[in-house]
Write a protein that binds this DNA or RNA. Structure first.
Length: 593
RNA sequence: GGCCCGGUAGCUCAGAGGAUAGAGCAGCUGCCUUCUAAGCAGUUGGUCGUGGGUUCGAUUCCCGCCCGGGCUGCCA
């Protein structure tokens, strides 16, 4: 979607200047509010193709002045500010909104099959705000990539085995008294998490006692003393029993993991997440060893004197890929799992949504995959995101300072439902609950997506529970307002058919249309950067432009019926874009607020 | 020590070489018999960490330094 007069200008410049690129370089930008004009053509960008920026601007202004779509042109430095005739402006922006929306799709030859892995929880405790950020980033990125035409496969890789799982199991064995989610009414993941916390308490107590009894150990760290404790040894033994397939351990593990999976399913459902496939680490943790043997034969890896197998990664350093006893390390199974994912789905690109503390790990993983010679290893991407901190500092599971995902959802939904109740006393409890869910969860996701993924963000619960200002509900509110206008228009028999767009020459109408026209470009740029935060910023801008229009230009009370029709058409077009944008971010759109 | 990320208004954050650096919150002023006030209009608030360099032009790119965070295991 582009403005005809700008495309025409580029064609002209191409004829006049031999060096002018075949692919368009001029993008019409919205003209700043304080300047006269609808769109701006920035000729600094094309200066080098046309002599210099000023010459380009002069030539552009000459051409645009004569163009039938153009009402006025003003040149300031190398900026050419163009005032368009309303009919032309709307024709090139919102008049055919379905065409505009469709133009966000990439051409077939640029679409890819992309595997996105995210969430990757452990099954020893419920999910917290950090997971919510991960889940939100992963699902929105997947949705965004699909929106521009890619074939996206969303997968999860659950860490369902290991020493941390055994910790919850040991505590349950000792203190569980046969409790179940059914008998206690506690959501399965929370019940298991309770025993994980209990384990850590018991361990702390034993460590304290140990240090008191043996002063020579007092200076050692908790990790170093783990196997000095009875609890630690029991946990270690349980892990070995699990690996050996000891029936009673496997049985307990299956039961407790089942509880956790039931709990996670509810959390995912509430967020609107559906994975195409969930890999279990208990099935994949042995993968990779055979590849190491191959790599060793090919000379990609080498043996160190002490027997460990390692990979020399130049600037990144050396990475051990097999211990001297021949067992796997973390990266070994990641190598194997990466290959397995490729074999299962043949993606052209793979994305991992994982916290930034694993930046080095992924650099090494990708470097190793390349050294192993896989052609597809050039398109592996770590979507690295920063931690979520609280005003009180970092979240720490052991210190009980985490913000629990389910509790947070409940609180957001409850407050949103309260606000709905104040506005409309007629609503039933069911309706309130539904709206609270849409608005509360929408506000949370929107807030998490507003930040650039890599920034370490601060989550202020008090501020986040407000629904005013640059928030999801602000955008949802515009959707609700538009819906309300449409409903009332329908009641009065007004329609948006055969709109005469030439009537929409009010500055607020033109700004709204110009802003709307930016949407496809915003989606494509966001997808290219693999960062949905641009879409969030854009929706706020569009919603703001609509609110300006809403104030300045009454729709249903316009002076004449033709103007009602045209403004209704503009409102509906904007409503379509807002809904499309929110859905792309996996945020639901309320009909009323 | 080395590598990576960050430092922009009181606070939280946008700004991928371009116009006089933006938004929200907080503060202050107004606006609900008018399509939904979760809204709108206005206003206060800045040596863009710092010192150099490249450029017609630098918050943006390069180098040094300061401050904060992460990583730097035969942990995951």
């Amino acid at each position: 979607m582009s403005y005809r007069c700008v495309a025409g200008l580029e064609d002209q410049l191409r004829r006049e200047f031999a060096g002018y690129p075949a692919e368009g370089v001029l993008v019409a930008e919205p003209c700043p509010a304080e300047m006269k004009g609808d769109i701006t053509v920035n000729c600094f960008r094309i200066g080098r193709f046309c002599g210099n920026p000023m010459a380009a601007a002069t030539r552009a202004a000459e051409f645009l002045k004569e163009h039938p779509d153009v009402e006025a042109v003003e040149v300031i430095k190398a900026f050419v500010n163009v005032t368009l005739k309303p009919g032309a402006l709307h024709r090139d922006s919102v008049a055919e909104v379905e065409t505009l929306l469709a133009s966000a799709k990439l051409p077939e030859n640029r679409r890819k099959r992309i595997l996105v892995e995210y969430s990757a929880p452990n099954t020893n405790k419920p999910q917290h705000l950090g997971h919510v950020r991960n889940n939100t980033l992963g699902m929105s990125l997947s949705s965004l990539l699909k929106r521009v035409g890619h074939d996206v496969i969303e997968i999860n890789l659950v860490n369902d085995r290991g020493i941390h799982i055994c910790k919850s199991m040991i505590a349950y064995q000792r203190n569980g008294n046969g409790e179940t989610p059914e008998s206690t009414g506690i959501k399965g993941d929370h019940l298991v998490g309770k025993f994980y916390v209990e384990f850590n308490k018991m361990l702390s107590a034993e460590l304290d006692a140990l240090r008191a009894a043996k002063p020579d150990l007092a200076g050692k760290k908790d990790d170093e003393l783990f196997l000095e404790t009875e609890l630690g040894r029991a946990t270690q033994q349980m892990l070995q029993d699990w690996e050996a397939g000891k029936p009673e351990v496997r049985e307990l593990w299956t039961m407790m993991n089942g509880w956790v999976f039931d709990g996670f399913a509810k959390t995912y459902e509430r967020m609107g997440i559906r994975f195409e496939h969930t890999y279990l680490e208990s099935n994949t943790y042995l993968l990779g060893k055979d590849i190491i043997a191959d790599g060793l034969a090919k000379g990609v890896f080498r043996k160190r004197e002490d027997g460990a197998t390692l990979c020399d990664l130049g600037k990144l350093g050396e990475k051990v890929v097999l211990r001297s006893d021949g067992t796997s390390v973390y990266i070994t199974q990641d190598i194997g799992t990466t290959l397995k994912k490729y074999q299962d789905y043949q993606p052209e690109s793979m994305i991992w949504v994982v916290g930034d503390e694993q930046n080095l790990h992924f650099q090494m993983l990708f470097a190793i995959m390349k050294k192993l010679g896989y052609a597809w290893a050039d398109d592996l991407f770590h979507l690295s995101y920063g931690m979520v901190n609280l005003p009180s500092g970092k979240m720490k599971s052991r210190e009980g300072t985490v913000v629990d995902a389910d509790d947070l959802f409940d609180e957001m939904a409850r407050l949103a439902a309260e606000a709905c109740r104040e506005r409309d006393t007629e609503l039933t409890e069911t309706e309130l609950a539904e709206r609270g869910e849409i608005i509360g969860l929408g506000a949370l996701k929107f807030m998490l997506l507003k930040f650039n993924p890599k920034t370490t963000m601060l989550f202020d619960p008090a501020a986040s529970l407000k629904f005013e200002g640059d928030t999801g509900p602000y955008v949802q509110y515009v959707a609700a307002r538009i819906h309300s206008i449409r409903r009332k228009a329908a009641e009065r028999g007004a329609t948006s058919g055969n709109a005469d767009w030439t009537l929409l020459g009010h500055p607020a109408e033109k700004v709204l249309a110009v802003t709307a026209a930016e949407y496809p470009g915003v989606l494509q740029l966001a997808a290219e950067r693999r960062d949905a935060s641009g879409v969030v910023e854009y929706l706020l801008k569009l919603a703001k432009a609509f609110n300006g229009f809403y104030r300045e230009c009454p729709v249903l009370a316009a002076e004449k019926s033709e103007l009602v029709t045209a403004r209704l058409a503009l409102s509906e077009a904007v409503g379509r874009i807002i809904a499309d944008g929110l859905q792309t971010l996996t945020i639901r759109v309320p009909e009323a607020m």
